Simulated assay, not measured.
Amino acid sequence: MARPELPDLASIRAAQERIRPHVTRASLLRSSVLSELTGGDVQLKLEIEQPTGSFKVRGACNAILTAQRAGSVTGVTTASTGNHARAVAYMGRRFGLPVTAFLASSVPAYRVQALEELGAAVDTSCADQSAALDAARRLAAEHEYAFVPPFDHPDVISGQGTIGVELCADLRDLDAVIVPVSGGGLISGIGLATKAIRPEALVIGVCSDRADAMLRSLRVGHPVPVPEVETVATSLLGDLGPDNHYTFRIAQQVIDEIVTMSEDDIRQAMELLSTEDGLTIEGAAAASVAYLRATADRWRGKRVAALITGNAVAPG
């Protein structure tokens, strides 16, 4: 059986035009503290400016709009650790579509509440992310809803890739882009765009050492399951799925390096961004900054973009 065709720069540029009226062109913030620490020019891509506080609206918006163009869509279903489901719920409400979101039982209650406030029906009966995905697919098939997975879908990847187009346009001498990694939708899209526009720029992925599915998979040459354990980087939980069609193959092509950071490193990065740059972010979003701090000497004289991916922090 032929493998599915991968998204590319053309599909990412098409997504950029499609989603432009519905998402924010997130700004760049030069981090004085990180630039001083590294001796380089560190630019933070503030996806926390998106209407749901996360980059995920880009992929969700592109997937839903593309599905609507292909035929009648009466509803949407998805599965997520939180940010993607919130993005789908937001876009569903924007486009007048009912949304059902399946979450693993371990997802914090405040994330469930955020989805319900957006009008989504939420099911938290699944043991983990893989079970949630299976349940979402079943419901979509039963009700002829559009199924929008959190990362392994060409329209989702193309939507996330619009960040890479923006970075290459705004930072024409970009030397590296640092991206938090879970299932790989974000780094796949950014990597495709960056390597097509500025191939000399490094694409570096950062996992939590408690959620390192992509790193383990790349090491052995195929997707591998990983157990879900508690981590400050909640949004990085989950593996690539047993039937991954897109993100692993793209990751093999576009990721130059992939590393893990510890819980302490991520927490310290969160505190640094809060204290020095006034940014309240979630653990997953701090992974890129944790890596920059750990490799500071490497970036002297370099222009580096770090993805600040989301701000879904627990209240209080």
Rank of each mutant, 00 (worst) to 15 (best):
P4I: 10
E5D: 12
I12V: 14
R13M: 11
E17W: 05
R20T: 09
P21T: 12
S27W: 07
L29N: 04
R30D: 06
L37W: 00
I64C: 10
I64P: 02
R69Y: 02
T74D: 07
V76G: 05
T78Q: 05
H84R: 08
A85S: 14
R86H: 06
L97C: 12
L97F: 12
S106P: 03
V107M: 08
P108V: 14
V112E: 14
Q113W: 11
V122H: 13
Q129D: 09
S130Y: 08
H143C: 09
D155T: 07
Q160A: 10
Q160N: 14
T162F: 05
G164S: 08
G164P: 01
C168G: 09
D170L: 12
L171N: 03
G185C: 06
I187Q: 03
G189A: 09
I190Q: 03
G191N: 10
K195V: 09
E200H: 15
A201S: 15
L202E: 15
V203R: 02
V206R: 00
R210N: 12
M214W: 06
L215A: 12
R216T: 09
R216P: 06
V220N: 12
H222C: 03
P223T: 10
P225L: 12
V226G: 02
V226C: 07
V226S: 03
E230N: 11
S235E: 13
L236F: 13
P242N: 12
D243S: 15
I250V: 15
D264I: 07
D265T: 10
A269Q: 05
A269D: 04
M270C: 14
S274N: 09
D277G: 01
T280V: 15
A287Y: 02
S288I: 10
S288F: 09
A290R: 05
Y291N: 02
L292R: 02
R293K: 15
T295S: 13
R298Q: 15
W299I: 03
I308Y: 03
